[in-house]
Design a protein around this nucleic acid. Structure first.
Length: 747
DNA sequence: AGCTAAAATGTTTTT
DNA sequence: CATTTTAGCT
């Protein structure tokens, strides 16, 4: 609150200071700002007076448009920096945007509000905490906290052994409802009746537990902000008046709740600019609705649309390949990118015999690229669908002494020792956080085992206390051994002592104190194993992270704030910024990035598209977009690889190429076909049980009952599973057919 | 209570 | 295959 007003005042001072000497600066800088942009980009930057939807294809310079639009509006005196709200999808993108804005408009950029939806909502909820249903030091539950809680609740409901009711699935349903702003008590019509019944019971309990723990989950941050603005129009007005200039990046990845939040703040949307690309929507599984882009005009009726289709990143050949894949999606407005950088570029399709060969060929190619001299390691990325694919590449890179970084995966903060340290800290600021408390109550061992915990929990339930409240009454808890009682009393004393210190000590020192007095330091030191030594080292690193926070100049420094910020960090944010290393990451993590050389690996049926998301057309198209996003990361060279055999779940499986590969331009498919060493290509005509002739080869002319004449571009599988990709003369389209079922005949 | 070893289980993507 | 859960033992 105070800072908000301080900012208002500071803004006013800057304002009057500006009056006198802006004119000269102004004309020069607005020209500068527009000079480097193309026509539609300029339009997007200068557009004024109606809600603006920028449909920005991959590599079309959308971050440029966003930053320049902000800079232009500031330079031309329409808004002050502190009136700007820019929402991005990742913290990393926010940091990058801030950096660029500082370059454009100088230190004034500091006063802009640039961050993710979650980060911004956290900021508002903290400032208006008196108006929400939580105490000031609320915890933010991460995925594992949510998991522990749901597990506990499901056990209470008698579902602990039911394989159909996994905590993860339940959480997904709850999250789905929250993202659509459906409260715990509201009726829901969903087809899956079994799930519906469980969730209808679970959701209110879950929400009540969060409340009792003085905690919010990720989705609650958004929902909480929406509720705040809906309920209290004064607060809403305060913020919507403040943010005279609202920009939202990656709009195709926003969910219903986030879109509603934008609507609440932007009002009629006159000062709203959203940037999105329906072809790059890859977070549908998290509740993102492409609809927000496709139906932007419904929410903001007088909107203006500007399309950016000039791609500054990739050479034409790469775009051709990417375009020819994405063209097969039906859920799109439709656009074709063209390369400002002109013709050229390389696209290679490589068929590998095994996943091991895939790794060694990719690494071999990387060494080749870098030995030839014109490419450095940091300009190369290996992209995959799932984290688990990284291992083979890591091994192979290490063997070849090629430096690499794996980006994403939250590994550091997921480590047990770090979670323990964080759980201790959480309890100091928010003793109601029973999930954190249960996690460390007996770490290191102090003789309060499972049975004692159960007794304490039961007592807490019975007397409507938090778990910590029950600890306080240890003496009255039935079923607690006297040894456990003593241990609990000592524990409570320790926590209370630490709580006192938490008001005075900086975070880093407090962490030290916590680890010291809890006995965790000495417990690990006594262990003496290599594992324990690793843990100690990780904790040291955690302490230095805390030191960094203490020394940073963020405005509302406190332990609670430190913990809340920590909760919003992701693997991408934590990636070591190592220059000179090959980059390994999932396609999802690669969004927004670009590399001169890209290897997209594991393009197999079941992996990309992933087996769990190819049921519905909606899911399948999202997988295709994933493929598209990956391909459009490449600037000069794109390698597409797949393996005919891959070890999965511990056993080696035969693999089919991804259907998306058949959608590539013919010459790329041909090149992949030439390189392939098909051990299983049939030497003699095979036939299935019905005796139908099954001899189909690449290049064969075929006739189809419905589609007419066509040419075989690719074959895969064998016997009953023989599939062919046929390009039909009639409409020039390519279709994948299973020979056994298709009315197909060789000519 | 707590440790170790064996068994089961689950594996997509992330703010 | 790798992580988590459980059973059996001390």
């Amino acid at each position: 609150m105070e800072t908000y007003f301080l900012r208002l005042q500071r803004g006013a001072i800057v304002d009057s200071h500006r009056e006198r000497n802006t004119l000269a600066v102004l004309t020069r800088s607005t020209n500068d700002i527009l000079g480097s942009l193309n026509k539609p980009q300029q339009e997007a930057v200068t557009h004024e007076g109606s809600p603006l939807l920028v449909l920005a294809g991959a590599g079309s310079g959308k971050t440029r448009v966003l930053t320049h639009r902000i800079a232009y509006w500031i330079a031309s005196g329409r808004v002050e920096p502190w009136q700007v709200l820019a929402v991005t999808f990742t913290n990393k993108a926010a940091r990058e945007m801030k950096r660029r804005l500082e370059g454009l408009i100088g230190p004034d950029a500091q006063s802009m509000h640039v961050g993710t939806f979650h980060r911004m909502c956290l900021l508002w909820l903290r400032r208006e905490v008196a108006k929400i249903d939580r105490g000031p030091n609320f915890s933010i539950f991460d995925e594992s906290d949510q998991n522990s809680l749901v597990k506990k609740l499901l056990a209470q409901m008698g579902f602990q052994k039911d394989p159909d009711v996994s905590p993860a699935r339940c959480l997904q349903w709850i999250s789905g409802r929250k993202n659509r702003l459906i409260g715990p008590g509201e009726p829901v019509e969903e087809e899956d009746s079994f799930d519906r019944n469980v969730i209808n019971e679970l959701y209110p309990k879950y929400q009540e537990s969060l409340r009792n723990a003085n905690a919010l989950d990720f989705d609650d941050l958004i929902r909480g902000a929406v509720e705040l603005f809906r309920k209290d129009s004064n607060t809403r007005d305060k913020y919507s008046r403040r943010y005279c200039h609202i920009l939202v990046d990656e709009y195709q990845d926003t969910n219903y709740a986030q879109a509603e939040l934008v609507r609440l703040l932007a009002g009629d949307g006159e000062n709203l600019c959203v940037v999105g690309d329906e072809d790059q929507s890859i977070f549908g599984w998290r509740g993102a609705e492409i609809r927000n882009v496709l139906e932007f005009g419904d929410a903001f009726s007088n909107m203006t649309v500007i399309r950016l289709e000039e791609n500054y990143r990739s050479k034409q050949k790469i775009l051709d390949a990417a375009n020819s894949v994405i063209r097969n999606n039906r859920q799109r407005l439709g656009k074709d990118l063209w390369a400002a950088r002109g013709a050229g570029g390389e696209v290679h399709l490589e068929t590998c015999r095994s996943d091991l060969e895939e790794a060694s060929r990719v690494v071999g190619e990387i060494r080749q690229c870098c030995a030839d001299g014109d490419i450095s390691f940091r300009e190369i990325a290996i992209l995959y669908r799932t984290h688990s694919q990284s291992r083979l590449f890591e091994d192979e890179l290490r063997r070849n002494r090629v430096p690499y970084v794996v980006i994403g995966g939250r590994k550091f903060y997921d480590r047990k020792e770090i979670k323990v340290a964080i759980a201790y800290l959480k309890i100091l600021v928010n003793p109601s956080d029973s999930i954190a408390l249960a996690r460390i109550l007996n770490v290191p061992n102090r003789g309060i085992g499972q049975r004692s915990l159960e007794a304490l929990n039961a007592h807490a339930d019975h007397r409507s206390l938090t778990l910590f409240g029950a600890l306080d009454e240890a003496g009255d808890v039935p079923g607690l051994t006297s040894r456990a009682k003593n241990a609990v009393v000592a524990f409570v004393g320790m926590i209370e002592g630490l709580q006192e210190d938490s008001h005075t000590l900086p975070v880093a020192e407090l962490v030290n104190e916590v680890l010291d007095r809890s006995g965790y330091w000495s417990y690990l030191e006594k262990e003496g194993t290599r594992e324990a030594r690793d843990r100690l080292a990780n904790l040291e690193e955690f302490v230095s992270a805390a030191t960094e926070y203490d020394e940073s100049d963020s405005e509302e420094k406190s332990l609670a704030n430190f913990l809340q910020e920590l909760a919003l960090l992701t693997g991408v944010d934590l990636a070591p910024e190592e220059e000179g290393s090959v980059n390994l990451m999932t396609v999802h993590n690669a969004k927004g990035l670009e590399f001169p050389v890209v290897f997209l690996v594991g393009i197999e049926d079941g992996l990309l598209p992933h087996i769990n998301s190819s049921e519905t057309e909606k899911e399948y198209e999202e997988e295709r977009r994933l493929c598209y996003v990956a391909m459009t990361r490449a600037m000069d060279r794109l390698y597409l690889t797949w393996a005919q055999r891959r070890s999965l779940f511990g056993s080696i499986r035969e693999r089919d190429p991804s259907p998306f590969l058949f959608e590539l331009p013919d010459e790329i498919i041909e090149s992949g076909r030439e390189e392939a060493d098909f051990e299983d290509s049939p030497d003699e005509p095979a036939s299935d049980s019905s005796g139908k002739e099954m001899d189909f080869r690449v290049g064969d002319l075929v006739r189809h009952g419905k589609f007419g004449m066509g040419t075989i571009l690719y074959t895969s599988g064998k016997g009953d599973k023989l599939k062919v990709s046929v390009k039909f003369d009639g409409d020039g389209r390519r279709r994948d057919l299973v020979v056994k079922y298709a009315p197909l005949e060789r000519v």
